[in-house]
Design a protein around this nucleic acid. Structure first.
Lengths: 339, 339
DNA sequence: CTGAAAGCGCTTACAG
DNA sequence: CTGAAAGCGCTTACAG
C-alpha cells in the first residue's frame, strides 16, 4: 500500500488478478461491453480503485498518437481579456480530459513561429491561435498538415478556417450609434495600425457609422508597439490638438483607452462634459475610474465556451474535410457615466 | 520533402544513412563525444537539419520517465499578479525546454486536490504551487512521494519546503512606517481572514508597526469569498463608521483595495485629504485612479525568475535530500498621490 | 468471453 | 568508434 503508486502498470494488475493485459485495457478504456463478463469488470474496477491505478499517459500517447493537449497561443496572457478567457477555457478543457498549454506571442510573428515549431515536437492535438500580424501562411501550413486549428479573436475574411470571434464590425457600429444618440456630434476613433481583422473590422464599423450619420471620419491609428510608449502618448495629444472639435472618443482596445485616459487627465479634459468616452473590453479599472467608463464588453464566458466546445468537436471528427466551425458573438454595451 | 515530417523517426534516419539508431540517438542527445567520429556526427546533423526531424516526445517520456512539463497551480490565473508572473515564467521555462501548464484553484482545497490527482496521471516533472488554505497535508504527501514541489507566494513557516515568496512582514511594516512618516495617525489595515502566510505575515507586519508607534490596531479581516460581494462591502462600510478616527488605510490585496476604493468613492471620502490609501500589488488601475494610489509592488520579474531557476535547479538534482531553495524578496514602495 | 503478441519511437547497458 | 537488442506501458488486430 505504501509503494509508489505511479509504478503500478497494467501488467501488474493483470498478474495480480490472473487476467491478461488485454482484458484490463478494455475495461479501463470502457470498451469492455459485450466482450468481458460483468463479474470480471467489477473485480477489475474494484481493484483499480483500490490501488489507485492511473494509466501512463506517455505510453498512451506513444501508442495512440494523441497527447490530450491543446495549445492556446494568445497575444499576451497577462492581458486581462486573454487571461479571463484562459481561465474559463482551462476548466472546460480539464473536465473533458484535455490539458491546455498557454503561450504568449506579444504579437510577434517570429515568436509565434518558434512556439509552433516547439509544439510540433510535442505533438499537441489542437491549436487555438490568436495569430499575430502577417501570419496567414503559417496558419495555412498548419492546416495543410492536417493539424486542428481554431482561430480566436481574429480571423481571415477571405479564408475558410475555424474561428470564434467577436462581431467587431457590428459592435463598433452600435457603440458609435449609441454615442450619436447621446447627442455627441464629432465622434473620434482611436485604434491600432494593423491588419488584424479585430481592429480593421472595428475601424470599418466606425467608418460606416459616421458615414451613415453624415459625420466626418476623425480617426487616429497607433502602432501596436507605440501604445504604451511616449510615441503613442504624443500622437494622441497631437490628434486632440489638431481636432478641437472632437466631443467623443471610441477607443478600440483597453490599452488604448488607458493611454488615452491618462492624457485626458493630464490635459485636464473633463469626461463626459468636454469629451465623452467609450472603450472596448471591460476591466474593473473602467468601472472604478472617475467617471466610470462606458464599455463595449466582450462575452468572456461565451467566447471561452464556444472556443473549447468547437475545438473538442473538431477533435472528435474523423475527417478534416467537414464544415468549418465559425462563430461570431456580439459585444455587450455597458453604459456608465463617461458617455 | 512534402511528406508529413512528423512521421520521420530515428529508424528512418538510420536506414537512410546506413547507420544504427544507437548512433543517431547519441548524436541527437549530444552524447556523441568520444564515441562517434566527427565525420558521422556532421553527416547526421546535416541530415536531421535537412529533413526537420524532431524526436517524438511521447516516446522519450515513456523511456525516460520525464515529461519536460511543469505545473503552475495558482489561485486565479486571471488575477493580474498571477498572470503577469505566469507570462514571465512561461518564456523562461520554454527556453529551457520545459512547457508549463497553468491551472487555477480559486483557493479551493477540493479543486486543488482534483488538479493534483489529474497531474499525477500525466506525470509532470515538477509542481509550482500556490497552495489554498489547509493544504499542508497534501503538500507533505506530494513531497513524500519524491515529487519536486516549489511553493510560491505563500509557504509554511514551520516546515522545510522549497519556496519563493515576498517578504510580506517587512514590506507591510515598511508601508505602515511610511504612512506614519507622512503624518497619518490612525492607520487601519484591511486584510483577509485566512491562515495563508502571505496574509498573516502582512497582518503581523502591520501589528508590529503600529505597536512600535504606540498606535491602536485598527483592522478589518474579510473572508476570501466575501471580497467581491455585498457582504464585504457592508463589512467595510461598517468598519469605517465604527472608526471615524481612521485617517489612512493599508489594503492587503489589490482586490480588497478595489472594493475599498469603490466604497470610499460612494461615501464621497476624499483621498488623501480625509483618508490616505496604500495597497499591495501594482496595477494600471491604481496609477490611473484619481488620485493615483500608492502601492507596495511585488517584483514580478524577479519572482518569476527565482521560481523558474529554482525549479530547474531542483530538476537537475540527483538527490532530493539536499538543501531546500528558499527565496524571500522585498516589495517596492511606489509613492503616488493617495498618501 | 478472453489472451498472446506486435508495435508505437525512443534510450541505454552491453558487446565487440 | 559502432550496433543489436531489450524494454518503457500502453492499444488493438487477430485468433480462439
Amino acid at each position: 500500500m505504501k509503494k509508489n503508486q505511479s509504478k503500478i502498470s497494467i501488467k501488474d494488475i493483470a498478474q495480480e488478478l490472473g487476467l491478461s493485459i488485454t482484458t484490463i485495457s478494455f475495461i479501463i478504456n470502457k470498451k469492455a461491453k459485450n466482450r468481458i463478463s460483468d463479474e470480471v469488470i467489477q473485480k477489475v474496477e474494484a481493484y483499480i480503485e483500490k490501488v489507485g491505478y492511473k494509466p501512463n499517459s506517455a505510453a498512451q500517447s506513444l501508442r495512440t498518437g494523441k497527447t490530450k493537449t491543446i495549445v492556446f497561443m494568445v497575444e499576451d496572457i497577462s492581458d486581462p481579456f486573454f487571461s479571463s478567457v484562459a481561465k474559463e477555457m482551462e476548466k472546460l478543457a480539464f473536465d473533458s480530459g484535455y490539458k491546455i498549454i498557454f503561450c504568449s506571442t506579444d504579437n510577434k510573428k517570429s515568436r509565434a513561429i518558434e512556439l509552433i515549431s516547439m509544439f510540433k515536437d510535442r505533438q499537441v492535438d489542437a491549436y487555438i491561435i490568436t495569430p499575430p500580424e502577417d501570419f496567414q501562411d503559417e496558419i495555412e501550413q498548419l492546416v495543410s498538415e492536417n493539424q486542428i486549428v481554431m482561430l480566436f479573436d481574429r480571423f481571415y475574411r477571405d479564408a475558410d478556417y475555424n474561428y470564434v470571434v467577436l462581431n467587431n464590425y457590428g459592435s463598433t457600429k452600435r457603440a458609435v450609434e449609441y454615442l450619436k444618440n447621446q447627442g455627441f456630434k464629432n465622434i473620434a476613433y482611436v485604434g491600432l495600425k494593423t491588419e488584424l481583422s479585430t481592429l480593421t473590422d472595428r475601424f470599418d464599423g466606425y467608418k460606416e457609422a459616421v458615414r451613415e450619420a453624415n459625420r466626418e471620419n476623425l480617426s487616429l491609428l497607433i502602432s501596436f508597439d507605440d501604445v504604451k510608449s511616449e510615441v503613442g502618448n504624443k500622437q494622441f495629444e497631437e490628434f486632440l490638438e489638431l481636432h478641437p472639435e472632437i466631443d467623443a472618443i471610441l477607443f478600440a482596445t483597453n490599452n488604448l483607452a488607458i493611454t488615452g485616459l491618462k492624457i485626458l487627465k493630464k490635459k485636464n479634459i473633463q469626461i463626459p462634459e468636454d469629451i465623452g468616452v467609450i472603450t472596448f473590453d471591460d476591466r474593473d479599472l473602467f468601472e472604478l475610474h472617475a467617471p466610470a467608463i462606458t464599455v463595449m464588453s466582450q462575452p468572456i464566458t461565451s467566447l471561452a465556451k464556444e472556443v473549447i466546445s468547437g475545438t473538442l468537436k473538431l477533435l472528435k471528427r474523423k475527417h478534416s474535410i467537414q464544415d468549418k466551425i465559425q462563430i461570431v458573438l456580439d459585444g455587450e454595451l455597458i453604459v456608465r457615466k463617461s458617455s
